[in-house]
Design a protein around this nucleic acid. Structure first.
Length: 604
RNA sequence: UGCCCGAUGGUGUAACGGUAGCACAGCAGACUCUGAAUCUGUUUGUCUAGGUUCAAAUCCUAGUCGGGCAACCA
């Protein structure tokens, strides 16, 4: 797969510039940190999607451009929603996306390693340093095993920090019900438990940890303010009780830290310098800072920066909605090629390089826009045009008999593998008396400007002869089932009349040599640009988002491999699907070629 | 409703007080043994109103519109 990432595809000419990179560049210029350190912290509660790809490209891109590191971290503080399946898929997707590009910037840790306690400026400090700078291949060949970081690996340390806040009188155990807590926070009233003694808080928090209390009966809250304008500063929750097994820590804990408490501390423990997240966390930033600033931490503190998440036309992006599509079998799985998930996009045949180019092209801002799918489609086509091997295949066959071509004769014509990459050479394609052409390439009563095959008209068969349609044969129902044509037998490449100017050139396959392939034609999943703008997004599902047909391919397709990309000439780009087996070709249509004729024909 | 954030062609972005540029999309043309690719040309824009300044997309004030947050989710 590695050759798919860079070969033949130019890197973006200039490194992108945006407000976050500007900030990082300024910090580098003033030597604020010994090294730039970002992180990509997904919660393992679903598969990664193209919005995450934007974040991955940002965080790893910065690490790459500024000589830094980007940690992969599972933000796993809620055991009831998370699962090991997602941990595995996240790793696979990240490795695929950054492979050959920022792989050497990926921060991982030795398997099973937990934070070390060190003395910094005479203060105890928890640290979790990454290993990095090894490629995936090197890691696989090494005896040592590596894994991503897990917020759950810091539960001991985060607990210690909670105790420290309690001891400073900056956190308290609250016994109100969830509803009461909501009510009090909304109205700016102080919890009746706010002024418990340090001793009582310590005792209660220990007993929370020891499992003496029911879920929901008590929480640990920071003591910041009862009526701050920013709700997140109104004595926010730090810990809640959940008697649940955790996919990574097992049954060790029955209290789990909230996102706000765990995230900033995880960043600190890992030595993150720039904690980049999406806009909805903007209002959490004061809390992020408050926690870190109230703990007497000896090392430089990380800072949070926010950017706008990706919204893409004709799809949905929330994990909840994507999971609904999966659970209700509206798609075949998280990696269904119609899904905006990284695994779906990959299965569809899009390369990592194309996805990265897309991420670069859309930029990073704080403006919540809706990116047109054409931007994604352009990145995919541009990438595939340069790398895809050209092949002849007919999706909807129409039989053609060349009446002046000898029965039983077979010849092989030379066909270019990829005009964009001449070094890929050429192959032989068999030609014979009976062929298949595309049904769309013939019209009995053609509209104006139709320069394909028509009665009495001529067209060039790509790499072969110019043919003329002499006769149409129909069945009893009146449908065209066969065309009788004559060929200009001197018009093949190098022939006497090869230079004749014929407006149309069409693709074909020799009937007796054609191989069948299952072809899955995908279209957008939804019929409207913003499926979740109103009501139920599922009412906007495109009923024609998948069509499965059997295509007739030139015999070279028998040698198709998953790592390659193919262009069925004049039609679309295709990639071999996971479901393909020896003797059973299955192709996914990644994306169609641009079709100027379809546009022209629509103008009527 | 409170708090926070944002607003540049159809879409996504750049311009960091000094010529509003790029990409996608669109349109027109050239070329073409892929109606692809490539090449050329081109339509379209600074939310509004005040202010500061020789000069404002940029700074200030107000408004308008849009988004986010107000989970014992992240």
């Amino acid at each position: 797969m590695s050759n798919l990432n860079n070969e033949n595809v130019p890197a973006p000419a200039v490194a992108p510039s945006d407000f976050i990179r500007d900030i990082v560049a300024a910090h580098v210029a003033e030597n604020r940190y010994p090294r730039i350190h970002t992180r990509f912290p997904p919660e393992p509660n679903g598969y990664l999607h193209i919005g995450h790809a934007k974040s991955i490209c940002l965080n790893f891109g910065i690490a790459r451009e500024f000589g830094g590191i980007c940690n992969l971290r599972m933000d796993d503080t809620n055991p009831t929603k998370e699962d090991i399946e997602y941990v595995d898929s996240i790793q696979a997707d990240v490795n695929w996306l950054i492979g050959d590009w920022a792989e050497d910037r990926l921060g991982l840790k030795p398997l099973g390693k937990t934070p070390e306690t060190k003395l910094v400026n005479e203060k105890p400090d928890f640290q979790m340093a990454p290993i990095f700078g090894t490629s995936e291949v090197e890691r696989k060949n090494s005896d040592a095993k590596f894994e991503p970081f897990y917020a759950s690996d810091y539960f001991d340390q985060i607990y210690e920090y909670a105790v420290a806040l309690i001891k400073k009188g900056k956190a308290f155990v609250c016994d109100m019900t969830p509803d009461q807590t909501d009510e009090y926070r909304r109205t700016g009233k102080a919890s009746p438990f706010r002024d418990r003694s340090v001793e009582e808080n310590l005792d209660l928090f220990t007993r929370m940890k020891n499992g003496e209390f029911q879920d929901g009966s008590r929480v640990l809250r920071a003591k910041i303010s009862v009526d701050a304008p920013n709700i997140w500063l109104r004595d926010p929750l730090l810990y809640r009780i959940k008697h649940a097994e955790h996919h990574h820590t097992g049954a060790k804990w029955c209290i789990y830290p909230m996102y706000d408490f765990a995230h900033c501390l995880s960043d600190y423990i890992e030595g993150i310098t720039h904690s980049i997240c999406t806009l909805e966390f903007e209002v959490h930033r004061p809390l992020y800072d408050w926690i870190l600033e109230n703990l007497d931490l000896p090392r430089p503190l990380p800072h949070q920066y926010e950017f706008a998440r990706l919204a893409l036309g004709y799809t949905v992006m929330s994990k909840r909605k994507l999971m609904q599509l999966v659970d209700e079998n509206l798609v075949t799985g998280w990696d269904d090629p119609r899904m905006p998930t990284i695994s779906g996009i990959r299965r569809r045949g899009v390369t990592a390089a194309a996805l990265r180019a897309f991420a670069y092209n859309i930029g990073i801002t704080k403006y919540n826009g809706l990116t047109d799918v054409s931007v994604l489609e352009f990145a995919i086509r541009e990438d595939l045009n340069k790398r895809a091997l050209r092949r002849l295949a007919v999706l909807r066959p129409l039989k053609v008999v060349i009446t002046n071509y000898p029965e039983g004769q077979v010849e092989e014509v030379k066909a270019t593998n990829n005009p964009e990459a001449p070094e890929t050479g050429w192959r032989k394609v068999p030609f014979s008396r009976e062929l298949f052409i595309e049904q769309d390439d013939f019209q009995e009563t053609p509209p104006p400007k139709f320069f394909r095959l028509k009665p009495g008209g001529e067209v060039r068969l790509k790499y072969a002869y110019i043919i003329k349609c002499e006769e149409i044969i129909k069945n009893a129902a009146g449908n065209i089932i066969e065309l009788r044509c004559t060929a200009d037998l001197e018009s093949k490449m190098g022939g006497a009349t090869a230079g004749r100017k014929i407006k149309g050139t069409i693709h074909w396959v020799s009937a007796q040599h054609a191989v069948d392939a299952e072809v899955r034609l995908y279209d957008r999943l939804f019929t409207v640009p913003e499926p979740d703008a109103d009501g139920d997004f599922k009412t906007h599902l495109n009923p024609h988002s998948l069509e499965v047909i059997t295509a007739k391919c030139e015999p070279a397709m028998l040698e198709a491999v998953p790592s390659e990309r193919y262009q069925f000439e004049r039609l679309a780009y295709f990639a071999l699907d996971l479901d393909a087996k020896p003797g059973k070709l299955v192709f996914n249509r990644t994306i169609t070629l641009k079709d100027a004729w379809a546009k022209e024909a629509q103008k009527k």
